[in-house]
Design a protein around this nucleic acid. Sequence first.
DNA 1: TCATTAAAGTTAT
DNA 2: ATAACTTTAATGA
Length: 197
Amino acid sequence: MVIDENILISAGAETKHYIPSETIFFEGHIPNYYQIIKGEVKLNNYNEEGKEFIQNILSDGESCGESILFIEKLYPVNAEAITECSVLRLHKSAFFNLLNQSPELYMEVNSFLSERLYYKFIMMQSLSSQNPSIRLRGLMDYLKSSQKDRTPYSFLILLTRQQMASLTGLCVETAIRTIKHMERDKIVRIENRKILY
DNA sequence: TCATTAAAGTTAT
DNA sequence: ATAACTTTAATGA
């Protein structure tokens, strides 16, 4: 968890509920601090043709939309609920009041920002490759890096193929074909549609 | 080779 | 039942 929920609430945060596919904030809007109590949220963009690119998927205890609070810019992404969600929202000014009172909280937020930045660096490397297998492996390597067990097939990918495609800028069909190919190459194992890496 | 389109099978709600 | 996801195949850039 980035910041203790009770601290956020006493600082004036409101709890908001969202249903799947409901938007939490839009690209171009003024940022606030959001922290997910429960549920999954994706940060995304839609290109000119309407194809979705998912920037990130966040869940319980993680913050969304904090990335640009420290500069005077508008959101470069949308935040959309994937599952049913409870989210705490704290206005930017209240958020900074809170941080000014506590160096510990400042560090928590910095640490979370670093983690997000790390994800971006890792993903950027693999996404710069034309090869879909390298892109998907970059994603899976990052996901698995949060787990201790490094043995093959020990990590269950909890993303749909659709989501994996949207996170790597591929079309679903290519993602599916590539994952099938990775199965033949013993890079992943597939058990009743679940991907083990 | 990958994206796109279409069509059909499968799973979840 | 209906929508969302998965899969295969054909076609074109």
